[in-house]
């Protein structure tokens, strides 16, 4: 409970301040071929990092939204990384087979990323500005989050 509150404050803090909250630079690998991925490597772009699992219902709902958002904002310098946290790959394979996702799907072989980001719920998403700072955190996914997330992305994209 205390952690929950703390994370809430953290989110408010992120949201309210443009000061430096550098996104943890955890090491990921591309889901399809295991090629190394580095979140820091996306500096200069607005990056949306999403943590998901195949067994999580709201994650399923968020995928079409992420695909649409990615398609729309990619030309303006937007990246989207969906980090899979399934313990068994078969579940994620089956999940992805039914999704049309052009954005980057990552896996977390070291299993350290969600802890570094202090993921509090599934899914959790982090919006990182062009300078590599976490600016917004979203816990869970609901229909009503869509407009807010898009507005936040647009605002971050308009920043230098």
């Amino acid at each position: 409970m205390i952690r929950h509150l703390a994370s809430g404050f953290l989110a408010v803090f992120f949201a309210a301040s443009a000061s430096a909250n550098p996104a943890p630079d955890c090491r990921l690998s591309r889901y399809q071929d295991g090629a190394p991925l580095n979140i820091a490597g996306f500096k200069g772009k607005v990056t949306y990092v999403d943590f998901w699992a195949s067994w999580c219902g709201p994650c399923l709902q968020s995928f079409p939204f992420m695909a649409e958002t990615y398609k729309e904002f990619k030309p303006k310098g937007f990246e989207l990384i969906a980090v899979n946290l399934d313990e068994e790959r078969e579940g994620a394979d089956a999940f992805l087979a039914k999704q049309h996702a052009d954005f980057t799907i990552a896996s977390d072989p070291a299993g350290d990323c969600p802890r570094q980001y202090d993921v509090q719920a599934m899914p959790s998403s982090f919006l990182i500005d062009r300078k590599g700072n976490i600016r917004h955190v979203h816990l869970g996914f609901r229909e009503k989050d869509k407009a807010e997330i898009r507005a936040q992305i647009e605002a971050l994209l308009s920043e230098p």
């Binding site: 999580c56 219902g57 709201p58 399923l60 599934m122």
Partner: peptide
């Protein structure tokens, strides 16, 4: 009744 974990919305 307390069903426990409600990890996915009821479809």
């Amino acid at each position: 009744a307390a069903q426990g974990l409600d990890l996915s919305p009821e479809a």
